[in-house]
Design a protein around this nucleic acid. Sequence first.
RNA 1: GCUCCGGUAGCUCAGUUGGAUAGAGCGACGGCCUCCUAAGCCGUAGGUCGUGGGUUCAAUUCCCGCCCGGGGCGCCA
Length: 593
Amino acid sequence: MKFSFVSDLEAHLRDAFGTDDLTVPAELCPPNFAGDVTINCFLLAKPLRRNPMQIAEQVAAYLAKHPDVQQAEAIKAFVNVTVAGGAVMRDTVADEAALLGAVTLPEADQRKVLIEFSAPNTNKPQHLGHVRNNTTGMAIASLLERVGNTVSRINLVNDRGVHICKSMIAYQRFGKGITPESVGKKGDHVVGDFYVRYDQEFRKQLSALKEAKPELAEKSSDELFLETEIGRATQDMLLAWEKGDPEVRALWETMNGWVFAGFAETYRRMGVEFVHTYLESQTYMLGKDIIEEGLAKGVFYKRPDGATVIDFEDPTLGSKVVLRSDGTSVYITQDLGTTLLKQHDYQPDQQIWVVGDEQIYHFRVLFAILKALGYDWADNLVHMAYGMVNLPTGKMKSREGTVVDADDLFDELDNLAREATLERAGADVPEDLDERARVIGMGALKFMLLKVNPKTTMMFDPQASLRFEGDTGPYVLYAYARISSMLRRAGDAALAGEVDWSVLGAKEEKSLALRCAQYPEIMHKAAANLDASLVTGYLLDLAKDFSKFYQACPVLAAETPALVRARLELAARVRTLLGDGLRALTIGTLESM
RNA sequence: GCUCCGGUAGCUCAGUUGGAUAGAGCGACGGCCUCCUAAGCCGUAGGUCGUGGGUUCAAUUCCCGCCCGGGGCGCCA
């Protein structure tokens, strides 16, 4: 927020104290104090080397005489300033293009960013955890784009490995040749069902094994995996896959095809899009050459047991194996390879991974290795770690069937939004009911997930999530729709000609305009911190300020045409910002609700 | 054991370079539709900011100890 009176005050103070380069911080005045804007003089005490109370007195005395200022009151070290309505409007919302334009960063600060998110496995459908990832990834990507960066969204699908073999084995044994079409089910769910079926069979064999050999009772299921018949069969299938066995490959292609078709549908409903999807089946062999290179450079060394390792200087990183003693890759080897591949393919200034916080250590190691290998861009790699989603009943566990399925959740929210819409519509069933239900349901879900700070482990209460009142996406959508409705009623002619902003000055009008003025800085901060919750919080504040204004100040029925015009114009600004902000979070809007 | 994240109202969460009397939503209670969409607005109740020290004019915020909860520390991914 930049006000003329603040600039004048800065010039005055620089002059009076002989200081260069002084910036005066102007904040919104807290609601329990009288004023619009507050100057915190504690922050001026150091640069001016004066007692903050004295500065406050001086600031208040200067501002009291300023033409834009109606009242300036010093309380302790704070100066609460009541600004003339016209001046507030002139310095905040009058120039819409300038307000929106300020969101775009200067060219020198714009970056080319590559963001990877979603990264699902092809053995089961997506659940609420993936939904948080997808929503966060899309929101961060479009937020970064909105402030002027060039963003490439990519996915890296884990389409090979033991997990998919499990589903394949179960399908071979229990599938009876069904297809998604024959059972009328999404392909990812069909494959996921076999993954669950596999686990049942494995458990069965495991308990039989433990019964036969009581000495194994204490062993973990991982340790006993190859002791079971189905475990060995799975291992054999994995090896056959790696050798390119035609039959195994054909089944793999078929089942992955089902999963991808299912994912496409889930992504479509969420509005998730990627410029490219890397497949692990095509990249898993990458990375070994980098190990060779690092070995030659002395970054890695071969341990007596044959494993290739790196010892970090940082004791919290310790030591990490990068190649097994048999020469095969580990997880991090592949990740080194794909990181280089992505760097080569896109030449980004920065790579971002949206991956759960349980992998924080993994990424620290990954980045440290790349740094040790001498890649200067390794300093710009970012793991955007986000927290898990828990349910009131506890953690989500696929095997225990306690996951909230993404598609089911979408359906449920869609239905509730439809009911809520019909309930409010009365006899007039809207023609675009489907569209409304979709936007409201998905908007409610995304907004709720984005509202909490990404790094916090969040609690998802399915019951509470189905409500559309209070601090929710629909609340914001509702404010948007009401303004749209007002503008429709007013007609285009109502927005023609000059606006006399000086007719505004009610506290609700000023608060609203001041809130609008915060938009660019909020967007910058959210983008810089990769934190979409700053935007949701802001949009709620803006929508609340609008609702208060709307309650207190009649717009279309205002006393004079000039007042109608100015209030309508102010409301239009709010609508523009709400739409812009929601779009930056990949949440759609509605013209009527 | 080492390490990372968290502990704020009954519940879910804000509070980010240390600043005024710690906020919101839900839930509870009480008001507001002859008036631009009540998915709304207004009010009441609800807090030793986990705990004990320290730094500071000023600490929910920074530092240290402790308690509680969660994650991570593999030749798994």
